[in-house]
Design a protein around this nucleic acid. Structure first.
Lengths: 351, 351
DNA sequence: ATCACTGATGGGAGCGCTCCCACACTACCT
DNA sequence: AGGTAGTGTGGGAGCGCTCCCATCAGTGAT
């Protein structure tokens, strides 16, 4: 009956007010029932619930967001181009965990890429508009300005891997250092002596930690670390291929490779093949992630499993707590919530 | 300073009203500028734009959604479990096209899975709450109730593949029939005579059309159609594996297989290997989709390329038109917008 | 001069909710 | 008896926008 709202009450779309009238109570009471407040008598609650059911009432989220200044949505931000996202199982596994966990809640998940400058622009706008209550940051590079932007906007955020040992944001990570040690120790125990390492992107802290683990595993076993056996990769297949070729050129006699990711290992495998090296006869190969690729590779790839799905779940948990507490900055330094999950070596025939 | 809104004007978050004051104009005028209405003089527009820039004004979407009764968001609905989504390149390619196209607009994309009953429940709620302006339906099965629900809620929708030849919703599809014909004709031209077909999920119309194309290509070439050479798959790798085994059992002498998807072909390849058949020497193999899998397979897979990314783009175009026109039902039957894009056979060494 | 128009503008009303204050009531103390 | 807490409840105010109507020039026609 409103002047411009007269698009006909057709579809129904009952309002809180209508539910209240139907149940014979006030607006506030219905709101309390909808939002699960305990301050409602059982009888009233029942009456309201009946009215809600009869009318098929569904809250209008826009109105709620406007009045309550929250959106019931969080964003998963991937600071990579879409192509990389789909190429790397790490991301999709993470998304799966996140999706599973969030579907138990009323929250809505937004998938956002911030690979190109244009996308980053849009994202900044988006965040500035406070269209999400919280943000999940996956695979952040050391110099990424996003965390600072979020802090400035006072938007709660959780990060998948800390940016450094002095990370201020809550984070969930796997034990990169320990995982790398496991991999290298395994190779050594198999009698391999010239173990190379193709790193991940070194501006990702976790990749650095894997290098540390690689180094320490060798030193602790009484082997020296030959820097020429370390070659930088970037988590990609091409990167793995390129790095492997470089390593073979410098060290034709290497007998094992620990790759920074399964995808990297796939690239390395290709290069090894091209060079006529057999796996694992001539060169043993170990990957990281234990993604689907590892199982499907020929030969099946030994890999360090990190519980990526669980990491996703935990991130959501942390973030929702953060959002509920509404103390994005206040909590820092007090109880820094940095979670580290254990890894596990899955041995297959490539090593 | 409102009573409860007094959470401190800290963050800034200027409102329309503040911009109006700054620019020395009325609220309505600022709104007009923001929304690109032509009914504003150049001088005023410039003044408002300056104020917007100075204040760093970003519209509050919740308020806009409430007042204008729209959300500026559309949902991409995948009626499959998450696992399948990530396993099948079809979906991610589609998403890539959709994402690319939509990033040119102000619209927001929501990724929604409706694989489990629980997810479908949530989705229904979500749609009932009118939290999106439009819906993109990908890979809908014949008996899916979702399209009807959308029609009932008067939410514009576009479907990726029609559910039948009598589809009422606007749709974008590739030429499944023609693509299948190309594949089979190619195999015949290579001298193959016992060409088998592993179908997709037959409750997907496109999969049926591929079977039709397979049949007609054989008949038109003067070959009979042996029904025992057709085995039902489900687009999955396991399905392809299973179907291939069944086919080999029935027809040990088959010399070619046209698989309903690249993933299916991957499963078939595995089964062929296990049976000691060489590709393409003993059995030629052709897939469908021309996804990344096809290029990486060993041997590289001949496949029917469908322009999936472009399909995604076109779907967005259609949907946005539909949303803009706000004539979800009215348009039907008048100018049914059914778009069909051409396919192309990409020949590699598997055939 | 008067009367239509037209284009640009200001601002009231209203979107559907949440928050909070006020108001009964009902216990339970002094 | 009067005070003091609690409970449950109703409803005003306000969130920041869009929509629309009224207003006010300006312009050309009568």
């Amino acid at each position: 009956m409103a002047s411009h709202g007269a698009r006909g009450r057709s579809g129904g779309r009952p309002t809180l007010e209508e539910v209240a009238a139907r149940a014979g109570v006030g607006r506030g009471t219905v709101s309390r029932v909808i939002n699960g407040s305990p301050r409602v008598s059982d009888a009233t609650r029942a009456a309201v619930e009946a009215a809600v059911a009869e009318l098929g009432y569904v809250p209008n989220t826009a109105a709620r967001a406007l009045a309550a200044n929250r959106t019931d949505a969080i964003a998963l931000v991937v600071p990579e181009p879409e192509t990389r996202f789909f190429a790397e199982p790490y991301f999709s596994d993470m998304l799966r965990g996140v999706g599973a966990e969030i579907s138990d809640t009323e929250m809505q998940l937004l998938l956002t890429f911030a690979g190109s400058d244009r996308e980053r622009q849009r994202l900044a706008q988006y965040l500035a508009a406070h269209r999400v209550d919280g943000v999940l940051l996956v695979s952040v590079h050391a110099d990424d300005p996003l965390p600072d932007l979020l802090a400035q906007l006072e938007i709660p955020a959780v990060i998948s891997g800390p940016r450094s040992s002095a990370e201020t944001l809550p984070s969930v990570d796997s034990d990169n250092y320990g995982g790398a040690r496991q991999a290298v120790e395994h190779l050594l125990s198999r009698g391999r002596r010239r173990v190379a390492h193709i790193t991940g992107r070194l501006d990702v802290y976790g990749a650095q930690r894997r290098v540390d683990g690689y180094r320490d595993a060798l030193s602790d076993a009484g082997h020296g670390v030959d820097e020429a056996l370390i070659e930088a990769g970037d988590f990609s297949e091409e990167g793995g291929h390129r790095a492997m070729r470089a390593l073979l050129e410098r060290h034709p006699d290497l007998d094992a490779v620990f790759a920074g990711s399964d995808v990297t290992a796939a690239g390395a495998r290709q290069a090894l093949r091209e060079a006529g090296r057999r796996i694992p006869d001539d060169v043993a190969l170990v990957g990281y992630d234990d993604s689907a690729i590892a199982r499907h590779m020929d030969p099946p790839l030994t890999s360090v499993r990190q519980p990526i799905e669980e990491m996703g779940r935990r991130m959501i948990d942390l973030l929702l707590t953060e959002v509920a507490d509404r103390r994005p900055l206040a909590s820092r330094g007090l109880d820094r919530r940095q979670m580290v999950l254990a890894t596990e070596l899955v041995v297959r025939s490539s090593s």
